[in-house]
Design a protein around this nucleic acid. Structure first.
Lengths: 341, 341
DNA sequence: ATACTAGGGACTATTTTTGTCCCTCTTGTT
DNA sequence: AACAAGAGGGACAAAAATAGTCCCTAGTAT
């Protein structure tokens, strides 16, 4: 198997790029169908005519259909996309990349999805799908699963297939809601994930960054205390990884605090904590939810993040726990490798 | 494995021809090294410039070297050629072709080598090599092996690797020598094969087509009788398949006999017999050697022939014996399939 | 009704590929 | 020693493929 690929790469070195080009086109159509030639060309940053040529080949192969409303992927095409994903993974040597990163970061497992989110927005969907698949195969009946917020977590939840045959899954938001787009809040995402897993969920109606008094008051509330207790019994946590600076701005930290944070070397943010590159806590948001100690005790923790600009953040988070599972994209992975070299 | 190939063929349909083109170039260089650009272009019937482009790619990949004496394949390249052979076999769906031909011809096994001898002389070498490999893996210590004459058998013998670790192999010429190029006579070929198998051989010094009286006299000779007896104990026979018309002319049969032969439907010639398309004997050369009855009793018989023009002859021979093994090329195989369809 | 985006056609510009010839060098033969 | 044959590399024009661009008509959603 591996032999065949090295063989092919030797004798047809140009194969990889052709394959990748067509894969990208097919995938992009799939995510946007029905889509027109020009829009697609814009998306991919390729000339309209090139799209046309490639699309004609793919059409001839029966992988897509061209109608007056636009192009769409056929059933055959969908199968191919799926198979191609794994194939490109091997072709690009991502398996090797995974192994070397696992060693360098000293973590249990890293899953790398081909592509770079910084160059292609749809990579987030792929990353989400990959993470969802891994989670599906990891969790068991009666498990309690925690999930954080953010767009990446949203794509994980939305990529989870229905009919997983899992029973009595309980999904919890790992932290209080962050005050922005409802769709991206952990509460909302937990509910969506629960629905797909045919399980139940509980909500945590607590704002971020409230003062200590208010926090203590909230913790008196039976409902909230119960949930916080349950959080400690969590079997698996799925969490997003953010850049410290980006998250601080999003949370509208004061200019003063932000500068302080960055001076202290904060590069990553996850479940309410800011970490420096070595995984040391730089700042802790005062909010209800999972704590770092809880985090370290959870059996399965799955961090998901994509885009090369998140490389530092991912590196930081990877030092928190040895048996962490990371799902990321090729862009981030390569950047991390550059850093640790 | 099969999946990967169908996947690739779906998304990069042009891959097959690129691969075949480069394989042909590489192989041709290998068989002729050192060879120049223009000679190579002539061999393959491709433009000089195309060769140049392709050769540069292959050179870049480290598969061949270009020196002022000409081009030659590197060690890496040789490995690639070998791997490529099997790969192209699968890519071209020859495995399927083999299976359907085995069914249609109702024979034990057919091995098809990619390419067409009628278009590329070097295919005979490939066929020979493939047959030699099969034989090597089939025969056992102390076996008695028979081999006929002809250029195809010569390439089988010359492609047999040394150091087969087989012990006490005895190679016999299956029939008396045919009066042409010594190199292609069964005696000579038997000796060459024996040498490679680190075994012994015996010679059969009997001309083809002698009259009955002379034949009987010869059979009185102790040495010859002994050999003929040994022929009947043969464990394996490797034989070439010829076209009736071509062989008849080569043996200088009278115009009269030739016409008669063809009128009776002779299409194939092997070990002294002329057969029609159904494998019925049309004529028997009077000579010393293996008989059709002997042939039917031999455990392993391996027929080797290549080139689409031999399709009919191969088809005829295939009806002689159910557990025959045929080694041929793609050209002949496809032609046979057309015939039996 | 209308504005928008779709695919297909068509033409040109550009790039790549291909054919060809020349030059010089190496090698084997005379 | 001379020479012929065949080698690779350079160079360039012709040819072909590829790519950019715009137009046109047809559906679709508003």
């Amino acid at each position: 198997m591996e032999d065949i690929l090295t063989l092919q790469k030797k004798i047809i070195p140009e194969m990889t790029e052709i394959l990748e080009k067509r894969y990208n086109i097919l995938r992009n159509i799939y995510y946007n169908e029905p889509i027109g030639r020009r829009t697609l060309a814009g998306n991919l940053g390729i000339g309209e005519r090139i799209i046309r040529t490639e699309v004609n080949i793919l059409k001839k192969q029966g992988l897509l259909e061209i109608k007056s409303v636009g192009m769409n992927v056929t059933e055959d095409g969908k199968i191919i996309i799926d198979q191609l994903k794994g194939f490109i993974h091997k072709l690009k040597g991502l398996t090797n990349l995974e192994e070397s990163l696992q060693q360098k970061l000293k973590i249990k497992k890293i899953i790398i999805v081909p592509g770079d989110f910084d160059k292609d927005d749809f990579i987030k969907k792929d990353v989400g799908k990959t993470a969802a698949e891994f989670i599906k195969n990891t969790i068991k009946d009666n498990n309690i699963i925690g999930i954080t917020g953010g767009s990446t977590m949203a794509s994980v939840a939305d990529a989870m297939p229905y009919n997983t045959k899992l029973k009595d899954i309980l999904v919890l938001p790992a932290r209080g809601g962050i005050g922005r787009n409802v769709e991206m809040q952990s509460n909302n995402i937990a509910a969506r994930l629960a629905k797909r897993l045919d399980g139940s969920y509980k909500l945590l109606h607590v704002p971020d960054n409230i003062n200590k008094e208010a926090l203590n008051t909230l913790l008196q509330v039976e409902e909230i205390r119960e949930l916080v207790d349950m959080l400690k019994k969590m079997n698996a946590l799925i969490f997003g990884i953010g850049r410290a600076d980006v998250m601080a701005k999003r949370r509208k930290l004061s200019e003063e605090l932000l500068t302080d944070l960055l001076n202290k070397g904060a590069v990553a943010e996850s479940f309410g904590y800011y970490f420096d590159i070595d995984g040391e806590i730089v700042r802790e948001s005062s909010t209800v939810g999972i704590t770092l100690d809880d985090f370290k005790k959870i059996k399965t923790v799955i961090g998901v993040a994509c885009g090369s600009e998140k490389a530092k953040a991912i590196k930081a988070i990877s030092s928190l726990k040895k048996d962490i599972v990371l799902v990321t994209d090729e862009g981030a992975a390569k950047e991390i490798l550059n850093m640790v070299k």
